[in-house]
Amino acid sequence: MAATTESVRADAAEAPLLNKKNMILGSLLYVVFYAWVRWYEGIYGWSAGLDSFAPEFETYWMNFLYIEFVLEVSTAGILWGYIWKTRDRKVMSITPREELRRHFTHWTWLVMYAFAIYYGASYFTEQDGTWHQTIVRDTDFTPSHIIEFYLSYPIYIITGGACFLYAKTRLPTYQQGLHLQYMVAVVGPFMILPNVGLNEWGHTFWFMEELFVAPLHYGFVFFGWAALGVMGVVNTEVIAIAKLLKKDLA
């Protein structure tokens, strides 16, 4: 009994398998931040975002763009650098319980990726449609682009990169090489950002009307398909977790 008591004490003292606090704080970070961004768009889109030659456009939108560039590069560097620097060099010798705990942490990252992908690919991309079909663009850096292309896309790239790096540096499941579908799920949506180059080149070259289904946009479509790679990640995780649990859950 004494040993059992010790064991229970040890259990109580150890970190929980799923850190719910991190999950809630992370989710709130995305939701509250993007709520603030949407508020900013609503206020300054109409009052300062219609004419890119106006001084107020420089104040409220170009400065926003410069600040987000700096913050994104810094965040990516610090976050990815931290995950890599603190990698587990003996990842294959961790205990099954520690491995399960890390799978939970990995899924906390994947849930954040889900938030980031939703806001980037769904919310701010279709929002860009209604903005440009309503307001005639006179610059590549429109208010909707400054949020969609240069804020929400980098954020899901940073989050996706963090997910992939976490799995690669801390989970035995991902040590046998590079997981193809995981790379597709992260690199594909990442490629949407370079594809902005094609998009802006086309819009500038042809200065065309705002047909959202124009073939110029099909690069976004192709790379958007890559999000389906998350199914391969799910399948890999299910296999790994089932092995760890070793229990008949039927």
Binding site: G177, H179, L180, M183, G232, V234, N235, I239
Partner: peptide, 8 residues
């Protein structure tokens, strides 16, 4: 897309 393959 649902595959679980690794590249070496």
């Amino acid at each position: 897309f649902g595959g679980t393959s690794f590249t070496q």
